[in-house]
Design a protein around this nucleic acid. Structure first.
Length: 131
RNA sequence: CAGGCAAAUCAGUCUAUCGCUUUUUUAAAGAGGAAAGUCCGGGCAGUAUAGAGCGUCGUACUUCCUAACGGGAAGGUCUCGAGAAAGGAAUUUUUCGGGAACAGAAAGUGCCGCAGAAAGGAAAACUACCUGAGCGCUUGCGCAAGGGAAAAGGUGAAAAGGUGAGGUAAGAGCUCACCGCUUUGGCAGUGAUGUCAAAGGCAAGGUAAACCUUACGAACUGAAAGACCAAAUAUACCGAGGAUUGCAGCAAUGCAUAAAGGGCUGCUCGUCCAAUCUCGGAGGGUAGGUUGAUGGAUUCCAAGCGUGAGUUUGGAACAAGAUAAAUGAUAGACAACUGCGUUGAAUUUUUCAACAAAGGAUACAGAACCCGGCUUAUGAUUUGCCUUUUUU
């Protein structure tokens, strides 16, 4: 089976300690309506990055709306993660990052796709700059 | 045609591509009627607990159902609206549809604005009514202290039983009939209550969603509860083994080292204790993981019992288990439904049947230990009842 587009459990950032550290020490990258928190790491991981999706309850009151946005984000990342993965493999880097949705209403899949791809491009540029 | 109430059913299906979670991994399964609000009640778990009382909180017509409830079923009472019947009237009976925080006001305390003469002590005399000491004179009229009187007027949510008659100076349950009320007793009912009879001239108005009284119930916490496994690191503890020195000083001692002190002895050796190092064990326990946690007051079907909520017996089924939290995204098709139109029949407003362009799933909403309820949100269809409007 072609695993090119898979985004399984190993990609998920689950450890509470790592999440705490990410939010305490990580760097912030704004790409409205999304915010990325990212941090280079040396933890043992199967893949080049681990990610978590967050939609604040403050902004989206209903659970079904939050679920919808998270699903869309996950789906888009799944389909568009290739460039990021390639870059990280080339540089021999590993990162943890969080995707935070900072908008008060639901967006369509197409809109979100556009925004997220932009954000990922920005992230790659930032990572290059750091070197 | 529109609106309201009640009940029932459903909450899209299929295909392709790329994915997610779980498990017994060539495969199978994967959100709701409210998963929601977290408002009640239980299970489950931990902690506490001799018994009793006070306090606090909750509940409040009756009986029943239930694991339990503040939930439900059946019944009762009162009350509101509409209608009908009896009667001269007061009033009573009855039908249909709603509503009730529906225990106690004769244990005690508090409160009852404005209006009104008087609003709780069985109160109160403004107008009008009756009587009239006395005064004035035109001698049968006027004024009038005081007294009688709750019948009429007026005020109020409410004026102290009602209607009719007798009675009286005028009046009054003062007396009588009927109605209502209260008390007592009989009968019916498991009971709330109902009904019949007798007695009482009728007495202590409302407010308990004011304090309060009475009866019944409640120990507290909450799945982040609780139980278990357990790396790394450090280690009070246990066992085995190693090492126990160097420098300064007469010595005490000081310095160094991971550590090198004390008992037995005059001293050395030895041995014991302590300290220290290495290895092993053990314990608690962090990261992390397992469990709790999905087979149950379960669901469906049938039969019996019960007015009913329910319940008993038999048979069948296993139906999400995630944990920064899965159950999705994209594209297409189908279908419920709406139906521009076309054809046929009855007919010539229209009705019924068939075909059908086009539109076409859109509402409320996402399990977080599990159940029973309640409440709220909400799309569509069907059935029943009620109301309004228009047309014939």
């Amino acid at each position: 089976m072609n695993k090119e587009f898979a985004l399984g459990k190993a990609y998920k950032l689950c450890s509470i300690k790592r999440i705490d550290r990410l939010f305490a020490e990580g760097q912030r990258l704004k790409a409205y309506p999304l915010t990325l928190m990212y941090q280079e790491t040396h933890d043992e991981m199967e893949h080049t990055f681990q990610v978590l999706f967050s939609v604040p309850k403050k902004r989206m009151k209903h659970a079904h709306d939050r679920n919808y946005v998270k699903r869309c984000l996950r789906e888009i990342l799944r389909l568009n993660k290739a460039p990021l993965e390639k870059h990280l493999t080339d540089c021999h880097k590993k990162i943890n990052f969080a995707l935070i949705y900072q908008f008060n209403e639901r967006m369509s899949y197409a809109e979100l796709e556009q925004k997220l791809i932009k954000a990922l491009d920005k992230l790659i540029i930032e990572l290059t700059h750091e070197e």
